[in-house]
Design a protein around this nucleic acid. Sequence first.
DNA 1: TAAAATTTGTGCGTATGTATT
DNA 2: GAATACATACGCACAAATTTT
Lengths: 240, 240
Amino acid sequence: MNLSRHPTTYPTRYQEIAARLEQELSHYRCGDWLPAEQQLATRFGVNRHTLRRAVDQLVERGWVQRRQGVGILVLMRPFDYPLNARARFSQNLLDQGSHPTSERLLSVLRPASGPVADALGVAEGRDIIHLRTLRRVNGVALCLIDHYFSDIAWWPSLREFTSGSLHDWLEARLDIRLIRHQTRISARRAQAKESRMLEIPNQAPLLCVRTLNHREGAHSVAEYSVSLTRADMIEFTMEH
Amino acid sequence: MNLSRHPTTYPTRYQEIAARLEQELSHYRCGDWLPAEQQLATRFGVNRHTLRRAVDQLVERGWVQRRQGVGILVLMRPFDYPLNARARFSQNLLDQGSHPTSERLLSVLRPASGPVADALGVAEGRDIIHLRTLRRVNGVALCLIDHYFSDIAWWPSLREFTSGSLHDWLEARLDIRLIRHQTRISARRAQAKESRMLEIPNQAPLLCVRTLNHREGAHSVAEYSVSLTRADMIEFTMEH
DNA sequence: TAAAATTTGTGCGTATGTATT
DNA sequence: GAATACATACGCACAAATTTT
C-alpha cells in the first residue's frame, strides 16, 4: 500500500467551474440566489450533474446553501470575513436566555421527550412548555435556543412571548427569577436542519450550551435550555 | 424567501446505505479495505453512483478514505464508536492543567508571540516558558494544552516536568497555587497539524478553552493556557 | 383551494479516463 | 500488457419542495 502523495493533476472540468463560480460570487450579495442549475449547466456547456458537483464544492466551503425547490442561496458576505480572522463576538457564558434581541420561532405545549424529561426531572410524556428562540445580530442568525419549562402554569403567560429577553419577560410577567444551577458545554457539527435555521454551511462547528435553571430558593429544575451558537461568531467568556 | 422549517423527510436510499455501512465499520479494523464499490453496489442492489454517494458520507465524516486505483481505506478505530452515541466524557470546566494523566510533548524557553504576550501582559518578544502537554484516556489522545508562564524563574523546575498533573507539580515543587481568573471558550475545526497530534480527522470540531491564571493573592497573570479538546469526546460541565 | 411551473434532490445506465496491481 | 478499481462526465427520468398561477 503506497501512502505517498498523488502527483498534482490538472483541474477537472467541475473544478474549473467551481473556481469560476467562486470568483463570480463577488458579483452577488448575501441573500441573492444563483441562476438555476440547468441555466448554469447550459452556460458552461456541461451536464447538470457536473454543474452540481461544482456547486458542491462551494457548499463545502460554506459560500452557498442549497434549498430544494427554491435555489442556491449565496451566504458569503463581507460581514463574515473578519469573523474568521478571530474577530468573534464575546459573550458572557452565563447570559443564556437574557438576550435582549431574540425572537420566538416556536411556542408549544408538548409531551416531554426522554432527554428533556430527564433534565427537568419529570416523567417522560408529561406536558411541558417548549419555546424556541433565535437571536440575531445585525440581521445575522447567531444563536438558536430551545427552552423547556416544567411548570405548565406559566403557559398562559409564556405563550404570549414573541420577542425580547425571555428571562426579563418571566420576571416582569410572573415575578419569576431563574438561577443557573448547572452548565454543560459541548461542540459538534451542525446538522442539516440546524444549518438551515442558522443559515450556515452544513457541518459548520456549533457551540452547544445546556443549562439547568432553578427558581430562587427552590431546588427542582424549572427550566432546561439548549442553545446552539455559530462557533465562528461567538466566544464565551467567564470571569471568576 | 421562506425560512420556515422543513418537514422531516424519510431517509433516502443512499442515506440508508450510508447508515448501514457505518454500522458495519465495526467489523473492520483501521487499515482494512472495504469491498470494491461495484461489489457493494451489487450487494445493496443499487447503481454504483448511489453506492458512491453513500460512501461519500463516510468520507465526510472521516471514517474512511478513498484511494484511486486501490479502494476505500477504513480509518476509524473501534474506540471511536460509543463516542458518537453521546457517550462523551464529562469534565469539569475548571480542571484545566490538573489532569493526573497528561504527558509532556514540549518544554522550551522562548520569546512570547503577540497573542501570548498580550495574554500574559508582558512585552512581545520577552522570554517566557512554553509547555505543551497531551492528555490521553485509554491511550486515545483527547486534549492538547499549551501552557505559557511569564515567570522564567520557574524554568529550572518546570523543565523537569514530564508527566502527571502540571498544577500539582507546581504546588509540590514551587509551592505555587494557581487560581483561574478568566476563561474563554470557543470551538472551531481542527487544522492539519492539530488533527495529526490529536489523531482525528481533519476538520473535526474542537473545543478551545483559554484561561488566565493568577497566583493566590497576586493580580498579574502567571499562566496563560490554551487547550484543544476533541469535541466528540468531551463535554464540559459546571455547577454553580 | 387546486393545479401548474420551477427548481433542487435522487437514481439508473453508460462511457471513458486514470491509477494501481 | 492485462485486469481491477476508482474518477469524471453525459443523458435521462422521476421525486420532493417551493412558488406561482
